[in-house]
Design a protein around this nucleic acid. Sequence first.
DNA 1: CCGGACGCTGAGAGCGCACTGAGACTCCCG
DNA 2: CGGGAGTCTCAGTGCGCTCTCAGCGTCCGG
Lengths: 248, 248
Amino acid sequence: MLWDVRPRVLVVDDEIGVRRALKRGLSAEGMEVVTAADGPNALRVALTGAFDVVLLDIMLPGLSGYRVLQRMRAEGVRTPVLMVSAKDGEVDQADGLDLGADGYLVKPFSFVVLVAQVRALLRRNSADLARRRLKLGELVVDRALREVSWAGEPVSLSPREYAVLDVLASRAGSVVTKDELLRTVWGDEQAATRNAVEVYVGYLRRKLDAMGAGEVVRTVRGHGYLASTPDLDAALGAAGTSAGTRRR
Amino acid sequence: MLWDVRPRVLVVDDEIGVRRALKRGLSAEGMEVVTAADGPNALRVALTGAFDVVLLDIMLPGLSGYRVLQRMRAEGVRTPVLMVSAKDGEVDQADGLDLGADGYLVKPFSFVVLVAQVRALLRRNSADLARRRLKLGELVVDRALREVSWAGEPVSLSPREYAVLDVLASRAGSVVTKDELLRTVWGDEQAATRNAVEVYVGYLRRKLDAMGAGEVVRTVRGHGYLASTPDLDAALGAAGTSAGTRRR
DNA sequence: CCGGACGCTGAGAGCGCACTGAGACTCCCG
DNA sequence: CGGGAGTCTCAGTGCGCTCTCAGCGTCCGG
């Protein structure tokens, strides 16, 4: 697998030997490793959300692994968590998974299995990794600068217009419903109506059309809007159809 | 956890005792269970994409669990897979995870742990559901694009028509009653009558027939509608599951 | 072979979806 | 205080979609 950025792994264990061993091993696999030794610190670090996987021991000073996981989920941090336990109790395992863990390892575990598990979790989230810039053909959405350009020419958008395009571009190739847009762009209070979405898509199209970027945002009647390009259509359409079928 | 539709689980094992036990247990947990007894049939059924989790034994007649998993991933089917093995070898486990498995259970496993694992996978992938694709022979329902095609040719459907086909395809191999369709497609208020369902199935058939795709949606008099293909019939029939077709 | 239940279909009324231009309102800046 | 940018509602339009109704075909039990 190729990573444009190295995956970041947080290793939480109270034994320094384990931390060191895991750090060395996972680094050798091309990952960036950060460690924490107790519950409160682990939680503090994990809440930054700046990790792709957390390796979490259950027996921890200060705050058990369960609690750390629970608090993480309660705060809305969805980083995949791999629980590690010395105990083999099946009930514990079920508990951990119910709290939102994504996997479970029983000590002593083999390093090969550990790496495979971590890789599996990384692979699953690879789509979300490091998406700082969204590109749809000639359209570039720079999320850091909140700037949009078409074929190198900057497109001046109002904040609302940008927000709508950001959501559509970040879900390129999938239809986004108006209600979803209302929720993500306007917030849960839904102060605006669906018509507002239509109006803003209209504004977007007007500006994009003026640059020659028509067809980027399509209407899928009865469902919502779809940001795509012919390129993307082909790439997504080619995947997985059994008999070499093509989308048009 | 609340589900708008019951999660659908595919259980693959060559021992009928295991299939039966799992089917009973998981059904009691509120899941819809479909079973397959050998590798080729499991693959055929899994490729429809109409499942939320696949429970896959490794030792299978015809095609090993590894191969089934490999072929599924190669065809772009991303349904979460939980591998089940009698062997405890760590290398096997790593192999399975590297092939794209999402979890690993070693026989004999406790049912509690199994259910926790399945639940964890269901929870995690509820967001991914939109990305998946349903296939019935030459028919492809692309949920991301809300697009339907037959043998590569797009089929133009109205929103209602699409919604009906989506439900039928996502329950491929199982009979769906008109009342269920009313509930899932029209909403709980049930503003429409059963005749509306008949009308829309009629519309669907007309359009599909025009593409040469007759027989995809069958009527099961007195029960409802069934989306299937001869292939799928054989695969499910061979496993000895009544898959709901005989419920009286 | 008959009758009733079930399922399918053609016709058509009307409503809802998507889009648009106009304009009210707020906020910010000079 | 005037002007401009930005946000959002409203009302109107065209068209496609939705769904009901009524009639007819089909299946099945007796």
